[in-house]
Design a protein around this nucleic acid. Sequence first.
DNA 1: GCGACAG
DNA 2: ATCTTGTCGC
Length: 213
Amino acid sequence: MLPSSVIYYVLPRLQEMIAYRVVQSGECTPLKNICGIDVSYKDDFAFGTAVVMDSISFDTMEVAESVTPIKFPYIPGAFILREATPILYTMRLLRCDFDLLLLDGHGMLHPRKCGLASFVGVLINKPTIGIAKKLLCGEVNSEYFVEIDRTICGYMHMGASNKRIYISVGNRISLRDSIKLVSKLTREGQSIPEPLRLADLYSKHHCKLFCRN
DNA sequence: GCGACAG
DNA sequence: ATCTTGTCGC
């Protein structure tokens, strides 16, 4: 089992170092191939699914799936311990390239400005956006921006059926562009951007199929 | 000390 | 996240 000193001292220092590398702005180049990765869990295994989709046509370009052993428990604020490895492993299986990665969890909307999307974004040095269903920290202001210590770190987006999601910069993109892209990539009647919604759907499906044998 | 706490 | 049947609602 993981020593608590790693969770309470080593990991936070690593997160602060990674947060320092986060770039909160992006280039003007069009983001064509969008990747969404999500992970489901069953017993001792993590089932990761990556979906790459064309941002204009919404055509699925590629799907990759992986099964890896679960190494860590879920600890709020230390989510990267549990989910980063399955995500990186699944991403490695992709044959086609992508311009933007969407992840289930926060980016810089995090106590140490380094949630899952920022951690992975800095590691792979690509644009990433964090999309979470619940707040880990911060307060929503009157304009739906989420503040930590009076600094804007994210945005609360109202999806279909009054379902809300919290958007934050992962890496190499602005919050403004993140909000725009999430809206653009979300289908009518849905609240989660399509690549992530499919990744979630497929990973749960893969998980159930796998466990029936 | 107590409660809150991404998936 | 996952464990789980029927059930309330658009």
